[in-house]
């Protein structure tokens, strides 16, 4: 496996010492201290660890860190810009679309990924796309509302 010396996360370059086959999630959380991405299952089944790699939503517990080398990685910590929340974050906040909120980072990152490729998702599109994200508290209806609301705001503001 290619040697891994650094990663670009949220626009910042970080030196990396963990072995290159370490799942990206553990490098982000344990080595880089970016704990917003969560461990929920370790088998890509719950979506709590979702990050954007090269713009696409990926389960970081299933991706070796080396596979992210040279590609921009965006985590939940990288969405807020100059104190302004990303429209998806703002929509989750406005809709109260979380309870324990442990799934929230992954839900938001998956939703950002969805809206990048589909700016006007139907309810069925959202359900389909978030099927791999578990919310055990049962906040699904509000999450769907939040994604719809974020899509609307992003279309209106051309983001």
């Amino acid at each position: 496996m290619a040697k891994l010396t650094e990663l670009e996360v949220n626009g910042k370059r970080y030196p990396v010492n963990y072995p290159p086959d370490t799942p990206l999630l553990y490098v982000l959380r344990d080595e880089l201290g970016l704990t917003g991405s969560k461990y929920g299952c370790g088998e890509g089944q719950c979506g709590a660890c979702t990050v954007l790699i090269g713009g696409a939503p990926r389960r970081s517990c299933q991706v070796p860190a080396s596979a992210a080398a040279g590609k921009p990685v965006v985590t939940i910590e990288g969405l807020e810009k100059d104190g302004r929340l990303h429209p998806v974050q703002q929509a989750f906040l406005d809709a109260g679309a979380f309870q324990c909120a442990y799934c929230t980072s992954g839900m938001i990152m998956s939703s950002v990924g969805l809206l990048q490729t589909n700016p006007s998702p139907s309810q069925a599109d959202i359900v389909q796309f978030l099927q791999g994200n578990v919310c055990r508290c049962g906040t699904h209806p509000r999450i769907i509302d939040a994604v719809c609301q974020a899509a609307k705001i992003m279309r209106e503001h051309g983001r």
Binding site: T35, G36, S37, Y39, E77, L79, L85, G96, F98, A101
Partner: peptide
């Protein structure tokens, strides 16, 4: 709304696991 909601949507809230 939930207090500290912003800490949860930004990933800043630290759970035990964090």
């Amino acid at each position: 709304p939930k207090v500290d909601g912003r800490a949860f949507v930004t990933g800043r809230h630290q759970y035990t696991t964090d």
